[in-house]
């Protein structure tokens, strides 16, 4: 089985993110970057599939030169080779442009399975996996928490607002990973050494252009500050008179 994984370079979840003085971007200096946590589940899943069933694993991103750091980490986790679709200001792209890039690479690579996180924690889009499935005519299952890989179909557990679902999904397919899909492993020293020698191709691609612009970033609206309450009676009064839910 051939598996393509999409990852994105995002600031660490613990990072303090602030707008630049002109508001056009966020302060990027000094930020620690990671593989988008949900994409990390996708990387681990591909590695697990390969060790169970063999085949080939490919990781890709749309990113700047610095994004090779995340690709190398995915290689160190056990992915075979990497593709960087180069874009110097990738964080300004619309999800449809990123989705287009993934689909274009997938058309060349022809994987049986494409896996990525359910959401990117930078621009908070959930659109990538479904975009790619639609663009390629692949089957789709989102928010996957457990997958059994059969020969022609997968059995996928997922959570929806209805409850817990089990889906039957024929290949080729796109999976979006939910927390719980697996436990990503920290790469071994050996893995890191091997990753340095694995192939990493850099690709230039013309993306569709859209009238999409982040005009400015602002800090979150300040909250009004905490009012400390002394008793439960006080809280009940607040719920009645100020919050007005009772």
């Amino acid at each position: 089985m051939k598996v393509l994984v999409f990852i994105k370079r995002t600031p660490d979840t613990a990072a303090v993110v602030k707008p630049t003085p002109d508001g056009k971007d966020i302060v990027r200096e000094g930020l620690a970057f990671i593989i988008n946590p949900y994409d990390e589940f996708a990387v681990q899943e591909a590695v697990n599939i390969k060790s169970a069933k063999g085949g080939e694993t490919v990781v890709m991103t749309v990113g700047d030169d610095a994004s090779t750091e995340q690709l190398r980490r995915a290689l160190a986790m056990g992915i075979d080779r990497a593709i960087l679709v180069k874009h110097d200001r990738f964080w300004e792209l619309n999800p449809s442009q990123v989705g287009y890039a993934i689909a274009e690479i997938a058309k060349k690579e022809n994987p049986d399975l494409i896996i990525m996180g359910k959401v990117t924690i930078d621009d908070y889009t959930y659109a990538l996996a479904p975009y790619v499935a639609q663009a390629l005519g692949y089957n789709l299952v989102t928010y996957a928490t457990n997958v059994e890989y059969g020969d022609s179909t997968m059995k996928v557990e997922r959570e929806s607002d209805l409850g817990k679902e089990v889906w039957e999904v024929p290949y080729p397919a796109v999976i979006s990973a939910e927390r719980g899909l697996n436990e990503p492993k920290i790469p071994s020293v050996m893995g890191v050494m091997k990753a340095k020698k694995k192939p990493l191709d850099v690709v230039e691609m013309d993306l569709p252009s859209y009238a999409y612009e982040i005009v400015r970033f602002t800090p979150p609206p300040p909250r009004k500050g905490v009012k400390l309450l002394e008793s439960v009676d006080d809280l009940i009064r607040v719920l009645k008179e100020e919050v007005k839910i009772l």
Binding site: I26, P95, D123, Y124, T125, V215, T218
Partner: peptide, 30 residues
């Protein structure tokens, strides 16, 4: 088409959406 998903506001012709897990808010023209 371009997409803007999971935004929470619309002010002065711009869409408002929490980025970087709501650590900042993006005001977006689309």
């Amino acid at each position: 088409a371009p997409i803007l998903d999971d935004f929470t506001g619309y002010e002065d012709g711009l869409f408002v959406k929490g980025f970087y897990s709501n650590k900042v808010f993006a005001h977006i023209k689309v």
